[in-house]
Design a protein around this nucleic acid. Sequence first.
DNA 1: TTTCGCTATGGTATGGGTAACATGATACGC
DNA 2: GCGTATCATGTTACCCATACCATAGCGAAA
Lengths: 336, 336
Amino acid sequence: MPTIRDVAKLAGVAPITVSRVINDTSYVSQETRGRVESAIEELGYVPNMLGPSLRFQQTLTLAVVITDITNPFWTTVTRGVEDIAQANGYSTILCNTDESDEKQDQYLHMLLRRRIDGILLVPACSDAKPIELIRKQAIPVVVLDRRIPDVDVDIVRADSEAGAYQLTQHLISLGHRNIMMLAGPKSVSTSVDRVDGYQNALREANLPENTSHVVWGNYSQEAGYQMTQEVLTLTPRPTAIFAANNFVAVGVMQALQEQGIRVPQDIALVAFDDLPSTFTITPFFTVARQPAREMGQRATQLLLERIKGASDVPCQHVILPTQVIIRASSGERIAA
Amino acid sequence: MPTIRDVAKLAGVAPITVSRVINDTSYVSQETRGRVESAIEELGYVPNMLGPSLRFQQTLTLAVVITDITNPFWTTVTRGVEDIAQANGYSTILCNTDESDEKQDQYLHMLLRRRIDGILLVPACSDAKPIELIRKQAIPVVVLDRRIPDVDVDIVRADSEAGAYQLTQHLISLGHRNIMMLAGPKSVSTSVDRVDGYQNALREANLPENTSHVVWGNYSQEAGYQMTQEVLTLTPRPTAIFAANNFVAVGVMQALQEQGIRVPQDIALVAFDDLPSTFTITPFFTVARQPAREMGQRATQLLLERIKGASDVPCQHVILPTQVIIRASSGERIAA
DNA sequence: TTTCGCTATGGTATGGGTAACATGATACGC
DNA sequence: GCGTATCATGTTACCCATACCATAGCGAAA
């Protein structure tokens, strides 16, 4: 593969002159420029970034570490990241941890060895360790979507609590008094926040304490399916179900359909996270939609500011609003 | 950030000794090893890959260039790539071109500047240029999913033609004689192959020439929606529709539902590519499923062999079989 | 005429890890 | 007692692009 020296030799100039032609950083005569450009063309020269990366400790690379690449919510967040990264001349590396702490650790070490310039992290656990690991290398990091207790770090997330509060309120306003919450893992802050929002709505509606029913599981379709089967054996049977995310909601629907239970006639259903329109033939779920792309954009802007040296500014905690979209799955007002 | 020299100084040894401890490449006494390990721990030292990458022209990085990150088919292929890459000590960079030739070009140049070790490319167009660009830098490349005419290059793809042939045959066996094919772009080989499979099936069933009806569009839900609206104005109305991919199928369903046309009672529907089970509440579409994850794995194995220097072996063209899954959307046998 | 600024080009040092080579020390066999 | 194998550690050079400093010609202002 040709180097800048090969180009220089062919054009009869010094390497630095070739560099100047490529980056337009200083005076080069038209005549010399022409010779250099021909040489570049002839050799098919592509500059090697690794030299400057090593020299100037800057790789112009960001990393996005997400927990589930099959969830369109995360791929949409990733697009938001790319929007801003690309506009600022940065490339992105996408890492998928599958919610595994171990995989996350592997990826983080890999990223540190590569000396990437910044990390956008969706933590696989509510642990301070990964943040400390990154901080020790003085690499800027912005946490996405999830709170981490007892760590002062930049965070960009959606308002899970308010969204869950509104969804629950919507169900209550329709007359529901026995609402089942099918939550994600206890170790993930969004899951905890959504349960809090749900319980706050119940409390503020002055419903008796024992109306709160929460089943903890995880953010997957299988979990939604199993939790629903469990819930259907209860008496009295809940009149509404709150699914903590989109995958859980699909699992719920599968279990209900299998048992011949109709939504919303027999049981009302609401969920967090919208499903992508590219897959849902008829939008059906009443949901709290998170501004996924904007989350990615905001987080990346913040990260780039940190990279550019705003290290004295105190850590920010950006909370974006969710949007409740009422559709068929939550049904009409029911009799008391 | 500490370097190997800082560690060496603290441990009272030469940098190379630290290197030997980390990589276990030569003799180091237990006592020295202990001192070095403590120093690494104390400084929180993480080796900088950029040094060796520059020196030995090896970044231990592969790139996957896909055309649509929102399509789970491609994220599944990507997982297959990661399976093999990670097992061999390689990291992957994921690039999303959105079927744009220009974006593809930008990404490829970025990857070349980074001196990644190999590229898995889903070409955004049937053009030989991107391959030539990569080849000029002597970087191994394996093409995924799509044929490129007049270029000798390794390819791993699914058998679009056979899958389309079988799906069409299935419709014919159910009595359909007026089957509409809603294809992808003419510039993408899978689209062309699926049309060929469809037409071959018609021909072999000895159906009259004029039974072949193809509308060219692209692989999106919007296109499926629009093409369907167009098709519904035809007389006689087709009794069956063949959607060239999963997104198109969803668009078809939306258009049909809007017009109150039932599937499969009024129109039968088959499609290429399965929808992920995490989204589909009840699997409904009769589809030809491609072995996505396996495609990624096979392609990566091949790429790694090329990287390890099997450059004299002639280019391979791996074609994996598709699997036809018959579900409700294609319906029962109809009257002639 | 001298000084200054602008144009145009080049030499050298730098960054971090490690292959290749070099240097000792100890141990063992004959 | 000497050659040889093994253990243990160190020195130097290298990869590539470019910031920094240096050089020199030329025209214009002082």
